[in-house]
Design a protein around this nucleic acid. Structure first.
Lengths: 151, 151
DNA sequence: GTTGAAACTTATTAAAC
DNA sequence: GTTTAATAAGTTTCAAC
């Protein structure tokens, strides 16, 4: 990753766009105290430099009938490249998995999973996750509340 | 949460906007196979119904000099409302904490934390997190890779 | 649901300072 | 960096089908 020099104005832009990704350039410029022209240039530069990787809508899973959110910690029994590949392809394939992090510590992967209800979660864990040969151990924590989120 | 009925077209719209939040209505309509007018109406309806909660830019923390990402599991010693309030206000105050989830299981909260380097992480854990009186126990996992992300 | 057109708002670029 | 101006593009609303 090429390191990028960001001044205070750039950081203001990033902070605003992180929360309001669809704000118009005119309002963004007004918000950060800059005129539209250099504001637009800075945004384009931040996009080209990879500081801003893209934009996305924040979707409410509950409103879409996905009311169960869980964190699943997964330990793989085998760590050979073929085992990791098999696990990774399953992770990419399963739409219930919205996030997958490789972590240090006691467990190897942390997944964020969303399902319609507890039955769908049970089916997911038993029939999908534990069906992956390299998965040795899973531990599920139900997410009761999102207390802070920058997304 | 009021449950919303979404048809296949709505789900297509959500799927596209989740990935490309700044797509124009004309291109979105073309992408999902609908004309611009009803497409725009559907998007507005999805926003009003709370399915789409907002839009945001995807920021690359590494490009901003925040190269360390960790998951921190936190157990509170005291669960009285005052203790939870103290912890929550610290969570909101500390910019390193980008996500905070209340979970069931062994530990009470899971945090996603970003810092500039390991020294900043050490200072954060020792001087900020452990300084909160209600925090009894923390466990930190370094995030080595993001293998999947819907954001 | 579709198309088409008009009115309005932005974005983008260039030129000046 | 700023402002102004002009062109291009997108959004919104309306009518008619």
């Amino acid at each position: 990753m090429t390191n990028v020099v960001l001044d205070g104005t750039d950081r203001k832009i990033v902070a605003v766009l992180a929360r309001e990704g669809r704000i118009s350039n005119l309002e963004l410029a007004d918000r950060i105290g800059l005129s539209p022209t250099p504001c637009s240039r800075r945004v384009k530069r931040l996009e080209e430099e990879g500081v801003i990787m893209g934009y996305g809508a924040r979707i409410n899973p509950a409103a879409m009938g996905q009311s169960i959110s869980v964190m699943v910690q997964v330990r793989l029994s085998q760590q050979a490249p073929a085992d990791i590949d098999a696990f990774m392809s399953a992770v990419q394939r399963l739409p219930q998995i919205t996030e997958c992090l490789l972590v240090t510590g006691d467990l190897d992967y942390v997944l964020k999973v969303q399902t319609r209800d507890v039955e769908a979660l049970r089916d997911f864990v038993l029939k999908e996750l534990k069906a992956i040969p390299s998965v040795a151990e899973t531990s599920t924590m139900l997410i009761l509340d999102v207390a802070k989120s920058t997304v």
